[in-house]
Design a binder for these strands. Structure first.
Lengths: 266, 266
DNA sequence: ACAGCTTCTCAACAATTCATCAACTGTGGG
DNA sequence: CCCACAGTTGATGAATTGTTGAGAAGCTGT
């Protein structure tokens, strides 16, 4: 684990060869109204940044751009946005490093853009802790939808106005606090056992990615021997604690013939 | 962590060992207007490069050339083009290796030129992930058409102007996300069974290549015994989920007397 | 160290979904 | 017009997942 940090010092060396081709977030006092959110788009491809920014701005967001990892970190330090859209495969300081660095002292929402379709395996090993995940090529509308979704999930105001959850109608709010190892559903704390917590944490840290039972045994149980039925069974009990209707899972989905997948909230 | 990132950093090393025998993409600041796209043509035959370049330039593209694999990789690293036209049978570092190397950290669109018509079998084993595929001899116009087609598919801007998809009239956008095993048609998620997903993924990974039912049984079902009617039947149900009009397939085409072929989008 | 508790594991069974294949129908090419 | 091949449909069985319970293993507090 110690081996994850030292890259910090090398940052400048790595970056030196990359010209900063970046528009940073507008500085000065934030002129936005109370409802306006700022998004930072990090991608080395300028066209991608432009298209994405255009779409997000059209939806009323304030958008900043960064062309590489260091620029992104600097931008975030200077004026933290409400959400970051981060391409994983950046040249130089990779997107994964940026994310890891970020996660060391912040819970800033991040949506990850993955270049290759089969990149799953590389992503899996690292507990990256992204809030959502998108494979290129994607449509700007889809990204915008995800942005809205993540922000909605993260928005504290939402809790205040969610009085009418009476009938158990629709949305369920689910929060995972890794620090206190507490999981909250609809404002109520649910008691999870150690394994249950590890499982839900792992899955939620890799939203939308499908894992086989064997993979879950490997990453959550950290054992190569072990009965796959155990995974099934834990999923079962987890659903009873976390899903509004365990018979019709909305978060912890079964992918028949493959395994399970975590679906981030609406 | 040092071991996780290096893919990006090693790029130069990989490229460095190869003598540059190549006209590389023009360097310096890109002088193109916003609409201009750059294509890299990789072929060991200079005449082919010339003819293809001539045609593409006539259509308004900026074209770079590379005569072998290493040169191609270097060129791409130095100034990534918008699309690569890649001959599979390069001397030395083969085209397949180039493609594989490329795919390790990028989703750059690639059109593959295959020398022999019967090369299918060699291609099939490796999931090369090309975006389109052309058999020599081909007409330059045909290649140009394919280039335009692939770029159109990949271009995010396309989405901005496609407001009038209302009536489900013409173009259907189809996306396959291997990570979440989700297939999206026209923005709607369609539920596929495991086999259906495997089948469509395999076919789409080898655009335009015709496969017999036996080949599909071998590669998708991974069995040598098995009734070919099963393939037919799965194609049938797949069409109903994926094709706008299953009676007149636009993607999953029947090649009478042979088998099936996947046609990449318009 | 031990008792009492919780949690994990695994096997057995039930329920569901899906793949398969065969028989039939439709269609296009010669 | 005929024949071969592809499309369509439905019944059946196999495979996968959900569910439950009982025993094993691990903790905690005394």
């Amino acid at each position: 684990m110690a081996s994850e940090v030292p890259a910090a010092g090398r940052e400048d060396a790595i970056v030196g060869d990359a010209p900063v081709t970046t528009t940073s977030l507008q500085s000065g006092p934030r002129p936005d109204g109370p409802g306006t959110r700022t998004i930072l788009v990090v991608d080395d491809d300028e066209r991608v940044r432009e298209v994405v920014s255009w779409q997000l701005e059209a939806e009323g967001f304030t958008v900043g751009q960064a062309g590489d990892g260091p620029a992104a970190l600097q931008s975030i330090a200077a004026l933290p946005p409400d959400l970051v859209v981060l391409n994983l495969s950046l040249p130089g300081l990779g997107g994964l490093d940026v994310l890891r660095r970020l996660r060391q002292h912040s819970r800033l929402p991040v949506i990850v853009l993955s270049g290759r379709n089969g990149e799953t395996d590389r992503i899996v090993g690292l507990d990256l802790g992204a809030d959502d995940y998108l494979v290129k090529p994607f449509s700007p509308e889809e990204l915008a939808a995800r942005v809205r979704s993540v922000l909605r999930r993260y928005d504290p105001p939402r809790i205040a106005e969610s009085e009418e959850r009476a009938v158990g109608s629709g949305d369920t709010q689910l929060r995972i606090d890794a620090g206190s190892r507490e999981v909250t559903v609809d404002g109520r704390v649910v008691e999870l056992t150690a394994k249950e917590f590890d499982l839900v944490t792992f899955l939620a840290a890799h939203p939308r990615l499908v894992f086989t039972r064997a993979q879950l045994l490997e990453h959550v149980w950290r054992s190569d021997s072990g009965c796959e039925a155990t995974v099934t069974e834990h999923v079962h009990r987890l659903r009873h604690k976390v899903e509004p209707n365990p018979a019709r899972p909305r978060r912890l989905l079964t992918i028949r013939g493959v395994g399970y997948r975590w679906e981030p909230g609406p």
